[in-house]
Every structure is written in structure tokens, then in C-alpha cells.
Design a protein around this nucleic acid. Structure first.
Length: 195
DNA sequence: CTAGTGATCCGCT
DNA sequence: GCGGATCACTAGA
């Protein structure tokens, strides 16, 4: 292996591939966070993606370099964190939907005003609140502080990933671009049994 | 467990 | 004006 640590994940890949590989990766923001257990892919030719109709002021970072954050306001109330992927010009990203809280539990509890660990990061808006994410993080590189991504440790059992339809959208509702760790109790919503 | 509802802002048509 | 990549809460099965 060359000097330095290998990249945790290659963001220069199709969004659904990145989304699948992110499950099991640890995300920390200023040392607070845990294992990503649920993601959704929004690809460049995807009618449900914010990037579908081309670049605008809001989605500009989706058209920037891969490996950066795209943060947007949802329903006028919440912030949602995405990881930009693929090459410039296309506009694709992965929405981080749920995290298994591991580091900085007390900090997350304070921010969320809630004790129950299961609900600290079970949903994109909840994650942003628990990790202190807001629009000022938009466009920041995921390779540098305050962000830290950590690949699953060698020898750790491989994560079994479920896939299913995405949540809360009205276009391309049947595309199975939601991914999650099978059986995790920290998901924003369970995956249905047998299709 | 699922289903329904109001809150609350801003980007886009 | 409209309608969200949501959440907290309530009611009911």
C-alpha cells in the first residue's frame, strides 16, 4: 500500500454505488457521530434529484467536486446532509439518512433535547441537528476537519445491506435507491420484508 | 406498528 | 403561489 491511508470511499462513482458502500462507514463531525446505517442515492438523471433540472444557487455544490458536502434546508425547518459524488457537470449526491450514534452521545442529546439513543440520528433532519450541521457546512470537503470518515475496520464482519424505495419523494418512487444495514434498529424506517 | 396533521421557509414555476 | 429528499405529535389497530 502506498504511503498514507487509502481513501475511505471513492466518490467518483455512480451515486447508488457510493450510497451502498457508505453503509457501515463511520462519520464524525468534530468528533461527534457514529456508523452510517442508512443512505439514499440521487443520481444525475434522476427526476427526484435536486440536480435534475440543472445547476441553481441551492444545488451548486452538487455540481462541484465529488467528496464534498451538499447541505440544503428541508421543509423550511430541517437541514439535510449529502455527500457529492461523480464527476463535475453531472450533479449527483447521497443523502445520509441514519446513523448509529457512537461518539459524543451527550453532545447529541443536548442538541436534540432527547435522551433516547435510537432516535438521536434516525432521519436526515435529526442527523443534522445531532451533529450540528447547517448551511455553513455546504460545499466543505469531507476529507478535512470538521469531517472525518472512517472505513470499517479490517476483520469487522461485512455489513449486510438492504435496498428499497426511497422515502418522502413523489418522483421515481419505485427506484430501489435507499440502502440500509439489515436489521439495524437505528434506521429512520424499517425495510419491508419480502417485495 | 401505521396513518394523519401542522409547522415553517424558500426555491422555483 | 406551490410544494417539498422532515419531524413531533396524536389517534387507532
Amino acid at each position: 500500500m502506498p504511503s498514507g491511508s487509502p481513501p475511505v470511499i471513492d466518490f467518483n462513482a455512480p451515486a447508488d454505488e457510493v450510497a451502498r458502500h457508505l453503509v457501515g462507514v463511520t462519520l464524525l463531525v468534530d468528533g461527534v457521530g457514529g456508523r452510517i446505517v442508512e443512505t439514499e442515492a440521487y443520481d444525475w438523471d434522476d427526476p427526484a434529484s435536486h440536480s435534475f433540472r440543472g445547476p441553481t444557487a441551492r444545488n451548486a455544490s452538487m455540481f462541484g467536486s465529488p467528496g464534498r458536502a451538499y447541505v440544503y434546508r428541508s421543509y423550511g425547518i430541517h437541514w439535510c446532509l449529502n455527500f457529492v459524488c461523480r464527476e463535475k457537470g453531472h450533479g449527483a449526491a447521497v443523502l445520509i439518512r441514519a446513523i448509529e450514534p457512537i461518539m459524543g452521545l451527550e453532545r447529541m442529546r443536548e442538541r436534540r433535547g432527547l435522551d433516547e439513543v435510537r432516535l438521536l440520528c434516525a432521519g436526515p433532519g435529526r442527523i443534522a441537528q445531532a451533529l450540528g450541521i447547517d448551511v455553513s457546512f455546504n460545499g466543505k470537503s469531507l476529507d478535512a476537519p470538521p469531517f472525518l470518515l472512517i472505513a470499517p475496520a479490517d476483520g469487522e464482519p461485512e455489513v449486510v445491506v438492504d435496498a428499497g424505495p426511497r422515502i418522502g419523494i413523489s418522483k421515481a418512487v419505485n427506484m430501489p435507491w435507499r440502502f440500509g444495514e439489515k436489521g439495524s434498529r437505528f434506521l429512520s424506517k424499517p425495510f419491508r420484508r419480502k417485495p
